[in-house]
Design a protein around this nucleic acid. Structure first.
Length: 337
DNA sequence: ATGGTTTTTACTGCGTC
DNA sequence: GACGCGGTAAAAACCAT
Protein backbone atom coordinates (compact mmCIF):
# COMPACT_ATOMS: atom_id res chain seq x y z
CA UNK A 1 0.00 0.00 0.00
CA UNK A 2 1.78 3.06 1.13
CA UNK A 3 5.42 2.69 0.40
CA UNK A 4 7.83 3.93 2.95
CA UNK A 5 7.87 7.64 2.99
CA UNK A 6 11.17 9.31 3.10
CA UNK A 7 10.02 12.27 5.00
CA UNK A 8 7.69 12.91 7.81
CA UNK A 9 6.15 16.02 9.11
CA UNK A 10 7.10 17.39 12.46
CA UNK A 11 8.28 14.44 14.31
CA UNK A 12 6.26 11.40 13.40
CA UNK A 13 7.91 8.64 11.54
CA UNK A 14 6.29 6.61 8.86
CA UNK A 15 6.62 3.54 10.98
CA UNK A 16 3.76 4.74 13.08
CA UNK A 17 1.60 4.83 10.04
CA UNK A 18 2.01 1.21 9.08
CA UNK A 19 -0.92 -1.12 8.95
CA UNK A 20 -3.09 0.03 11.75
CA UNK A 21 -6.70 -0.79 11.17
CA UNK A 22 -7.94 2.07 13.22
CA UNK A 23 -6.03 4.48 11.08
CA UNK A 24 -7.45 3.06 7.90
CA UNK A 25 -10.95 3.13 9.30
CA UNK A 26 -10.56 6.68 10.34
CA UNK A 27 -9.45 7.71 6.92
CA UNK A 28 -12.35 6.08 5.17
CA UNK A 29 -15.00 7.13 7.62
CA UNK A 30 -15.88 10.65 6.79
CA UNK A 31 -15.83 12.77 9.87
CA UNK A 32 -13.95 13.72 12.97
CA UNK A 33 -13.34 11.38 15.82
CA UNK A 34 -15.93 13.02 17.95
CA UNK A 35 -19.18 11.87 16.53
CA UNK A 36 -21.91 12.11 19.10
CA UNK A 37 -23.34 8.94 20.48
CA UNK A 38 -20.38 6.87 19.49
CA UNK A 39 -19.10 4.65 22.22
CA UNK A 40 -15.50 3.69 22.05
CA UNK A 41 -13.23 2.25 24.64
CA UNK A 42 -9.96 2.97 22.94
CA UNK A 43 -8.56 6.31 21.96
CA UNK A 44 -8.94 7.02 18.24
CA UNK A 45 -5.57 8.72 18.19
CA UNK A 46 -3.22 6.62 20.22
CA UNK A 47 -5.15 3.49 21.09
CA UNK A 48 -4.92 4.14 24.79
CA UNK A 49 -7.80 3.48 27.12
CA UNK A 50 -10.52 6.04 27.49
CA UNK A 51 -11.69 7.22 30.83
CA UNK A 52 -15.12 8.66 31.31
CA UNK A 53 -14.83 11.42 33.80
CA UNK A 54 -18.34 11.99 35.01
CA UNK A 55 -17.30 14.83 37.25
CA UNK A 56 -16.17 16.89 34.30
CA UNK A 57 -18.51 15.33 31.83
CA UNK A 58 -15.65 14.40 29.59
CA UNK A 59 -14.30 11.27 28.01
CA UNK A 60 -10.56 11.58 28.07
CA UNK A 61 -7.80 9.35 26.79
CA UNK A 62 -5.65 8.28 29.68
CA UNK A 63 -2.53 8.11 27.56
CA UNK A 64 -2.48 11.16 25.41
CA UNK A 65 -5.04 13.39 27.06
CA UNK A 66 -7.25 13.70 24.03
CA UNK A 67 -10.67 14.94 24.97
CA UNK A 68 -12.86 12.69 22.90
CA UNK A 69 -16.21 13.79 24.12
CA UNK A 70 -17.32 16.53 26.37
CA UNK A 71 -20.45 18.04 27.85
CA UNK A 72 -21.92 14.60 27.98
CA UNK A 73 -23.93 15.06 31.15
CA UNK A 74 -26.16 17.56 32.80
CA UNK A 75 -24.17 19.57 35.27
CA UNK A 76 -27.16 21.47 36.51
CA UNK A 77 -28.50 21.30 40.05
CA UNK A 78 -30.57 18.47 41.39
CA UNK A 79 -33.82 20.23 42.05
CA UNK A 80 -35.85 17.57 43.71
CA UNK A 81 -34.39 17.71 47.17
CA UNK A 82 -36.92 17.91 49.92
CA UNK A 83 -34.93 18.56 53.03
CA UNK A 84 -31.53 19.88 53.88
CA UNK A 85 -29.81 16.53 54.37
CA UNK A 86 -31.12 15.31 51.08
CA UNK A 87 -29.93 18.50 49.52
CA UNK A 88 -26.47 17.93 50.89
CA UNK A 89 -26.31 14.44 49.51
CA UNK A 90 -27.84 15.17 46.20
CA UNK A 91 -26.78 18.63 45.36
CA UNK A 92 -24.09 19.01 42.81
CA UNK A 93 -24.52 22.65 42.28
CA UNK A 94 -21.54 24.80 41.49
CA UNK A 95 -19.54 26.12 38.68
CA UNK A 96 -18.33 23.43 36.32
CA UNK A 97 -14.71 22.58 36.77
CA UNK A 98 -12.44 23.20 33.88
CA UNK A 99 -8.89 22.34 33.02
CA UNK A 100 -8.56 25.67 31.36
CA UNK A 101 -8.02 27.43 34.65
CA UNK A 102 -4.97 26.70 36.65
CA UNK A 103 -6.96 25.70 39.73
CA UNK A 104 -9.80 24.18 37.74
CA UNK A 105 -11.93 27.11 38.82
CA UNK A 106 -12.27 25.74 42.32
CA UNK A 107 -10.51 28.35 44.39
CA UNK A 108 -12.12 31.16 46.29
CA UNK A 109 -12.80 34.40 44.56
CA UNK A 110 -13.57 37.55 46.41
CA UNK A 111 -15.84 39.79 44.43
CA UNK A 112 -14.69 43.19 43.38
CA UNK A 113 -17.88 44.91 44.34
CA UNK A 114 -17.87 46.25 47.87
CA UNK A 115 -21.24 44.75 48.68
CA UNK A 116 -22.22 42.26 51.32
CA UNK A 117 -24.32 39.17 50.75
CA UNK A 118 -27.47 41.25 50.72
CA UNK A 119 -26.15 43.75 48.24
CA UNK A 120 -25.60 46.48 50.78
CA UNK A 121 -22.54 48.65 50.54
CA UNK A 122 -19.76 48.06 53.04
CA UNK A 123 -18.46 50.48 55.58
CA UNK A 124 -15.09 51.96 54.84
CA UNK A 125 -13.30 49.83 57.43
CA UNK A 126 -14.95 46.72 56.00
CA UNK A 127 -13.93 47.81 52.55
CA UNK A 128 -10.33 48.10 53.58
CA UNK A 129 -10.47 44.70 55.18
CA UNK A 130 -11.88 43.13 52.04
CA UNK A 131 -9.22 44.75 49.97
CA UNK A 132 -6.52 43.25 52.18
CA UNK A 133 -8.21 39.88 51.97
CA UNK A 134 -8.34 40.10 48.21
CA UNK A 135 -4.66 40.80 48.09
CA UNK A 136 -3.75 37.91 50.32
CA UNK A 137 -6.17 35.56 48.71
CA UNK A 138 -4.57 36.27 45.39
CA UNK A 139 -1.12 35.76 46.84
CA UNK A 140 -1.96 32.42 48.40
CA UNK A 141 -3.84 31.23 45.42
CA UNK A 142 -0.84 31.51 43.15
CA UNK A 143 1.74 31.01 45.79
CA UNK A 144 3.56 27.94 44.80
CA UNK A 145 5.61 28.01 41.65
CA UNK A 146 3.81 25.29 39.79
CA UNK A 147 0.50 26.97 40.22
CA UNK A 148 2.00 30.20 39.05
CA UNK A 149 3.57 28.42 36.14
CA UNK A 150 0.30 26.79 35.18
CA UNK A 151 -1.57 30.01 35.44
CA UNK A 152 0.75 31.73 33.04
CA UNK A 153 0.89 28.81 30.65
CA UNK A 154 -2.86 28.41 30.48
CA UNK A 155 -3.13 32.09 29.85
CA UNK A 156 -0.77 31.73 26.94
CA UNK A 157 -2.59 28.71 25.62
CA UNK A 158 -5.84 30.58 25.77
CA UNK A 159 -4.40 33.60 24.05
CA UNK A 160 -2.88 31.62 21.21
CA UNK A 161 -5.95 29.47 20.80
CA UNK A 162 -8.06 32.58 20.43
CA UNK A 163 -5.66 34.09 17.95
CA UNK A 164 -5.79 30.94 15.86
CA UNK A 165 -9.51 30.43 16.25
CA UNK A 166 -9.17 27.04 17.89
CA UNK A 167 -12.24 25.62 19.63
CA UNK A 168 -12.54 24.81 23.32
CA UNK A 169 -11.86 21.12 23.08
CA UNK A 170 -8.44 21.92 21.67
CA UNK A 171 -7.75 24.19 24.61
CA UNK A 172 -8.90 21.55 27.03
CA UNK A 173 -6.67 18.96 25.43
CA UNK A 174 -3.76 21.36 25.42
CA UNK A 175 -4.34 22.05 29.08
CA UNK A 176 -4.28 18.36 29.89
CA UNK A 177 -1.06 17.90 27.96
CA UNK A 178 0.53 20.84 29.68
CA UNK A 179 -0.50 19.59 33.10
CA UNK A 180 1.09 16.25 32.33
CA UNK A 181 4.27 17.93 31.15
CA UNK A 182 4.35 19.93 34.32
CA UNK A 183 3.69 17.02 36.64
CA UNK A 184 6.38 14.95 34.97
CA UNK A 185 8.89 17.72 35.42
CA UNK A 186 9.47 18.39 31.79
CA UNK A 187 9.62 22.11 32.32
CA UNK A 188 13.03 22.75 33.85
CA UNK A 189 15.32 24.04 31.17
CA UNK A 190 12.51 24.93 28.87
CA UNK A 191 10.43 28.02 28.56
CA UNK A 192 6.84 28.02 29.70
CA UNK A 193 5.88 29.68 26.48
CA UNK A 194 7.61 27.00 24.47
CA UNK A 195 5.96 24.09 26.20
CA UNK A 196 2.61 25.84 26.15
CA UNK A 197 2.89 26.36 22.41
CA UNK A 198 4.01 22.79 21.88
CA UNK A 199 1.07 21.52 23.93
CA UNK A 200 -1.38 23.52 21.92
CA UNK A 201 0.21 22.45 18.66
CA UNK A 202 -0.02 18.82 19.70
CA UNK A 203 -3.58 19.24 20.91
CA UNK A 204 -4.67 20.91 17.69
CA UNK A 205 -3.31 18.03 15.69
CA UNK A 206 -4.77 15.39 17.94
CA UNK A 207 -8.29 16.63 17.63
CA UNK A 208 -7.95 16.98 13.87
CA UNK A 209 -7.91 20.74 13.76
CA UNK A 210 -4.30 21.33 12.91
CA UNK A 211 -2.53 24.58 12.28
CA UNK A 212 0.82 24.80 10.62
CA UNK A 213 3.99 25.45 12.52
CA UNK A 214 4.25 28.81 10.83
CA UNK A 215 0.87 29.85 12.11
CA UNK A 216 1.95 29.02 15.60
CA UNK A 217 5.20 30.88 15.39
CA UNK A 218 3.19 33.86 14.23
CA UNK A 219 1.22 34.02 17.49
CA UNK A 220 3.77 32.55 19.83
CA UNK A 221 6.77 34.20 21.30
CA UNK A 222 9.01 31.25 20.56
CA UNK A 223 10.68 30.71 17.23
CA UNK A 224 10.16 27.74 15.00
CA UNK A 225 13.25 25.87 16.05
CA UNK A 226 12.46 25.99 19.72
CA UNK A 227 8.88 25.02 19.03
CA UNK A 228 9.79 21.93 17.05
CA UNK A 229 12.40 20.99 19.59
CA UNK A 230 10.11 21.23 22.56
CA UNK A 231 7.28 19.68 20.63
CA UNK A 232 9.36 16.62 19.86
CA UNK A 233 10.54 16.51 23.43
CA UNK A 234 7.07 16.71 24.90
CA UNK A 235 5.70 14.13 22.50
CA UNK A 236 8.49 11.74 23.26
CA UNK A 237 8.54 12.14 27.02
CA UNK A 238 4.79 11.93 27.35
CA UNK A 239 4.54 9.08 24.90
CA UNK A 240 1.91 10.90 22.90
CA UNK A 241 1.11 9.48 19.54
CA UNK A 242 0.18 12.08 17.02
CA UNK A 243 -0.60 11.05 13.49
CA UNK A 244 0.83 12.97 10.58
CA UNK A 245 -1.57 15.75 9.81
CA UNK A 246 -4.29 14.73 7.41
CA UNK A 247 -4.36 17.11 4.45
CA UNK A 248 -8.15 16.97 4.43
CA UNK A 249 -8.33 18.61 7.81
CA UNK A 250 -6.96 21.81 6.30
CA UNK A 251 -9.45 21.88 3.46
CA UNK A 252 -12.52 23.35 5.16
CA UNK A 253 -10.54 26.26 6.54
CA UNK A 254 -8.98 27.15 3.21
CA UNK A 255 -12.29 26.78 1.43
CA UNK A 256 -14.06 29.13 3.79
CA UNK A 257 -11.24 31.65 3.78
CA UNK A 258 -11.40 31.77 0.01
CA UNK A 259 -15.17 31.93 -0.05
CA UNK A 260 -15.65 28.78 -2.08
CA UNK A 261 -18.61 26.43 -2.13
CA UNK A 262 -19.34 23.12 -0.45
CA UNK A 263 -19.16 21.49 -3.82
CA UNK A 264 -15.57 22.56 -4.20
CA UNK A 265 -14.78 21.32 -0.75
CA UNK A 266 -16.21 17.92 -1.55
CA UNK A 267 -14.25 17.81 -4.77
CA UNK A 268 -11.06 18.72 -2.99
CA UNK A 269 -11.60 15.86 -0.56
CA UNK A 270 -12.16 13.47 -3.42
CA UNK A 271 -8.97 14.58 -5.06
CA UNK A 272 -7.07 14.04 -1.87
CA UNK A 273 -8.58 10.60 -1.39
CA UNK A 274 -7.60 9.64 -4.88
CA UNK A 275 -4.10 10.92 -4.30
CA UNK A 276 -3.86 9.03 -1.05
CA UNK A 277 -4.86 5.72 -2.56
CA UNK A 278 -2.48 6.36 -5.43
CA UNK A 279 0.23 6.78 -2.84
CA UNK A 280 1.57 10.06 -4.12
CA UNK A 281 1.01 11.90 -0.87
CA UNK A 282 4.00 10.30 0.79
CA UNK A 283 6.50 12.78 2.04
CA UNK A 284 4.65 15.78 0.70
CA UNK A 285 3.63 18.64 2.87
CA UNK A 286 0.02 18.15 4.00
CA UNK A 287 -0.62 21.86 3.79
CA UNK A 288 0.67 21.97 0.24
CA UNK A 289 -1.49 19.06 -0.74
CA UNK A 290 -4.58 20.60 0.81
CA UNK A 291 -3.94 23.95 -0.84
CA UNK A 292 -3.42 22.34 -4.23
CA UNK A 293 -6.51 20.22 -3.87
CA UNK A 294 -8.56 23.29 -3.11
CA UNK A 295 -7.14 25.10 -6.10
CA UNK A 296 -7.69 22.15 -8.41
CA UNK A 297 -11.23 21.67 -7.13
CA UNK A 298 -12.03 25.32 -7.70
CA UNK A 299 -10.75 24.97 -11.22
CA UNK A 300 -12.90 21.92 -11.86
CA UNK A 301 -16.04 23.56 -10.54
CA UNK A 302 -15.39 26.79 -12.42
CA UNK A 303 -14.92 28.96 -9.40
CA UNK A 304 -12.41 31.71 -9.63
CA UNK A 305 -9.42 31.66 -7.38
CA UNK A 306 -5.91 32.49 -8.34
CA UNK A 307 -2.89 30.54 -7.32
CA UNK A 308 -1.58 33.50 -5.46
CA UNK A 309 -4.76 33.77 -3.38
CA UNK A 310 -4.53 30.15 -2.38
CA UNK A 311 -0.86 30.48 -1.71
CA UNK A 312 -1.50 33.46 0.56
CA UNK A 313 -4.20 31.69 2.53
CA UNK A 314 -2.29 28.45 2.89
CA UNK A 315 1.10 30.03 3.25
CA UNK A 316 2.52 27.83 0.54
CA UNK A 317 4.46 28.88 -2.53
CA UNK A 318 2.70 29.00 -5.85
CA UNK A 319 5.26 26.69 -7.33
CA UNK A 320 4.33 23.99 -4.88
CA UNK A 321 0.68 24.45 -5.66
CA UNK A 322 1.40 24.11 -9.36
CA UNK A 323 3.41 20.96 -8.92
CA UNK A 324 0.92 19.31 -6.60
CA UNK A 325 -2.24 20.17 -8.43
CA UNK A 326 -0.95 18.77 -11.67
CA UNK A 327 -0.26 15.49 -9.93
CA UNK A 328 -3.67 15.57 -8.29
CA UNK A 329 -5.47 16.06 -11.57
CA UNK A 330 -3.48 13.33 -13.26
CA UNK A 331 -4.25 10.74 -10.62
CA UNK A 332 -7.92 11.63 -10.46
CA UNK A 333 -8.20 11.29 -14.23
CA UNK A 334 -6.63 7.88 -14.08
CA UNK A 335 -9.19 6.97 -11.49
CA UNK A 336 -12.36 8.23 -13.14
CA UNK A 337 -11.48 7.23 -16.69
C1' DA B 1 28.14 15.71 9.02
C1' DT B 2 26.04 13.92 4.83
C1' DG B 3 22.87 12.83 1.32
C1' DG B 4 18.45 12.68 -0.69
C1' DT B 5 14.06 14.81 -1.12
C1' DT B 6 10.93 18.65 -1.04
C1' DT B 7 9.97 23.50 -0.97
C1' DT B 8 11.15 28.14 -1.96
C1' DT B 9 13.19 31.89 -4.45
C1' DA B 10 13.95 34.27 -8.54
C1' DC B 11 13.42 34.78 -13.24
C1' DT B 12 11.50 34.15 -17.94
C1' DG B 13 8.01 33.59 -21.56
C1' DC B 14 3.21 33.34 -23.03
C1' DG B 15 -1.55 34.64 -23.46
C1' DT B 16 -5.44 37.63 -22.12
C1' DC B 17 -8.08 41.50 -20.51
C1' DG C 1 0.99 47.12 -19.22
C1' DA C 2 -0.79 44.33 -15.47
C1' DC C 3 -2.14 39.95 -14.36
C1' DG C 4 -2.55 34.97 -14.13
C1' DC C 5 -0.24 30.95 -15.29
C1' DG C 6 3.50 27.58 -16.49
C1' DG C 7 8.18 26.24 -16.50
C1' DT C 8 13.14 26.07 -14.90
C1' DA C 9 17.45 26.25 -12.14
C1' DA C 10 19.64 27.10 -8.08
C1' DA C 11 19.25 27.71 -3.15
C1' DA C 12 17.36 26.61 1.15
C1' DA C 13 15.01 23.68 4.31
C1' DC C 14 14.12 19.47 6.02
C1' DC C 15 14.50 14.63 7.56
C1' DA C 16 17.02 10.26 8.06
C1' DT C 17 21.14 7.90 8.37
Amino acid sequence: MTETRTRSYSGETERERTVDDRTIDRETSDSEATRAGERTTTCPECGGSLITDTEHGETVCDDCGLVVEQDGIDRGPEWRAFDSSERDSKSRVGAPTTNMMHDKGLSTNIGWQDKDAYGRSLSSSQREKMQRLRTWNERFRTRDSKERNLKQALGEIDRMASALGLPDNVRETASVIYRRALSENLLPGRSIEGVATASLYAAARQVGNPRSLDEFTAVSRVDKMELTRTYRYVIRELGLRVQPADPESYVPRFVSKLGLTEETQRLARDLLDAAKSAGITSGKSPVGLAASAVYAAALLSNEKVTQSQVSAVADISEVTIRNRYKELLETSEGLTA
